[in-house]
Design a protein around this nucleic acid. Sequence first.
DNA 1: CATGAATGAGCTTTCATTCAT
DNA 2: AATGAATGAAAGCTCATTCAT
Lengths: 220, 220, 220, 220
Amino acid sequence: MPRMAGSKRERPPTQRRNREAEVVEAAIDVFWRKGYSAATIQDVADHVGVLKGSLYHYISSKEDLLFTIFDESHRQAQEIAASVRAADGPAIEQLRTYFERYVRWYLDNVERVSLYLNEWRFLTGERYDTVVEQRRVNERFVRGLVEAAQAEGDVYPDVDAKYACFYILGAVNGIPTWYRRRGRQSPAQIARAYADMVVGTLRGTEPRSAPRRRAPAGTV
Amino acid sequence: MPRMAGSKRERPPTQRRNREAEVVEAAIDVFWRKGYSAATIQDVADHVGVLKGSLYHYISSKEDLLFTIFDESHRQAQEIAASVRAADGPAIEQLRTYFERYVRWYLDNVERVSLYLNEWRFLTGERYDTVVEQRRVNERFVRGLVEAAQAEGDVYPDVDAKYACFYILGAVNGIPTWYRRRGRQSPAQIARAYADMVVGTLRGTEPRSAPRRRAPAGTV
Amino acid sequence: MPRMAGSKRERPPTQRRNREAEVVEAAIDVFWRKGYSAATIQDVADHVGVLKGSLYHYISSKEDLLFTIFDESHRQAQEIAASVRAADGPAIEQLRTYFERYVRWYLDNVERVSLYLNEWRFLTGERYDTVVEQRRVNERFVRGLVEAAQAEGDVYPDVDAKYACFYILGAVNGIPTWYRRRGRQSPAQIARAYADMVVGTLRGTEPRSAPRRRAPAGTV
Amino acid sequence: MPRMAGSKRERPPTQRRNREAEVVEAAIDVFWRKGYSAATIQDVADHVGVLKGSLYHYISSKEDLLFTIFDESHRQAQEIAASVRAADGPAIEQLRTYFERYVRWYLDNVERVSLYLNEWRFLTGERYDTVVEQRRVNERFVRGLVEAAQAEGDVYPDVDAKYACFYILGAVNGIPTWYRRRGRQSPAQIARAYADMVVGTLRGTEPRSAPRRRAPAGTV
DNA sequence: CATGAATGAGCTTTCATTCAT
DNA sequence: AATGAATGAAAGCTCATTCAT
């Protein structure tokens, strides 16, 4: 319906609708920059441009806001896992695919995902339990693939799958420490590089005592 | 019991002294468990068993306490780097040595080192700058070794040394997420496994276009 | 369904109207259960099933709502007094009648009357004065009857009419503390019992020095 | 130990010591005048003359403060009941004694006791349960005495002991509505008058249908 | 009429820090 | 050294009320 001239005012384009999303977005930004504990509701309100009391139209508590942020992240993380589970091929290649998608997603949503991975311990009660369980599910998924890759001979049998998982997940988890948007390499390139390093870690790690039989003689 | 002139009271021999160290130790524990921001000076005082006002005999501020914790960590990190720099041999083996020592040290001081690696952003002003610089020095050290290893042919030339460093450091950084003292494997075993994975990552990561057969030695 | 000019929409026949009464009813319930101060406009709105903003179509302020509740109570209290004033017979019997009706009314409207008797101090300004005056009128009415009964010889002359009134009114006022609708005894029975106790208090209270023998019947 | 001239300052007589008691006293005053819900911690702090934050040295929450007030009241109420239980003599006289002491105590501590009797519902959880139970114990004590008096023939058998108790307790409960310290009559006199009215209520309440057969001339 | 967003003031509580004793 | 009281600022949250739509 066209608005006639003379109608009160052309409503400012962004201001209306989706204040809720705006609030979440602001919270992501603030929590990410200051850390959840150090960040204040006031900070978030300032970011949105309303009084802090007004925020409580959209949230029921600061912790609730954090949980909301996690919720979306978890859902997306699940989707990625599901998309990989649907594929077939050797486990090691599934891992490559998984991590390429996962890192890509991470890079595209660093702030939000980083919160999900690093600030979950500030939840309490049931919400804490929920998130801890969610994380465990994801870890088990990766662990399963690594063990499969080991069974398929792509990882030395002496490598401890558990530590390998921790190592890999830690490496990926560390992304927000250094990643800055508008860096020289595109998210796609970085995702590819990381996925390759994951595969490299798994394929390339030889038990120390093992003769250097992998690399053909003469070397090193 | 008569009071001797000049000495308020006979103090229990061992308990006295080193209150300062006690305070730092308590802070490490508390900050580690709750996070620096969420932890309170009250928590620390409770841990030491004094009133919070009394803490200010030993510290000058909460942030100061955090900085003190960092200080020791930095010094030790430097020592490890120095000890490796002193050695010679191929860079890749220096990296193995470095990370074995580094992880071992990390595991033996998880709480403190973890704070050093994760809560540095809560410092302000000059202290912030100091710590950021310290961290950079360490990163550069690792980066140097990786690049050397690449020059020596132990890392594919197409691998991006920068990302490889980030990846490795992230993996190691992730240790506190899962490490629990009194786990099944000894710190020494874990350190060895991690060092091997570091080497594995570097040696094993092939650029994707490369044929799946590993390049026969000497090619590079 | 076509919209007729002049009538926004066909409203469901019974549900409409009396929203105002609904609001007052809800407020009575909420204020009674939580206390005026602790109750919130939100609580009332929830009870009515509208948003709190919408309540302001029917009320002009929270205090206004309280005053409205008082208004009806006061009017009914007056009616009861008037109906008794119209009767004649000995004062003590008028008191019996009055309290039987009063208690009956109280029981039938516990929540509302209880608010009237106990939350009046939260009014401010003129409204406060109004209600205080109303209450005083009622007290004077009872006081008058008690003094008359004393003049007529149904109350020992040494009994202090003022305290007797306070005592009686307090007793009646206490009803909401224990009364639960659907108790074993009917409101009528309770009202009767209370009225009898009022009379009992007045007739039965002997000055302590008085000999234990009761004044012989008929003397009055 | 005598203080020498020249010592920093003669400490202001009241200011020191017992801040805790001062806080409770202030809270009693404020809660009593405004009602617990409407009263603010700020009010209490103003009364004590400190910043509101400072109050939390002495209390752990507003509700805790209320509970503290109740605690002393409950203890004293128990003592009174105990002192009466220790006596013997006819139940009706025990009731007289009990209420004389109880009312006396009430008058001497109107604000505090009134809070105990009227604001208990603002407690929550365990504390609520505790106080409800305490109150029940007291009611049972009075109820026991009334029933004993009835068994001993001092109360008409048709009188419902339950309602008689509610009535009496309500009457006494009503004291704070009108009592002002420095009234014309002394607390002792009022207590006596009230105790007599309690006895009067019990002895004087005849079932309505009953012939005036009580008090055959000269008897009892 | 009703909505729902927003306000602004104020609430309870927390906390790093200071300081006289 | 240690205490314990106090501060002052700020935190998270609530709530009566307003108002454009």
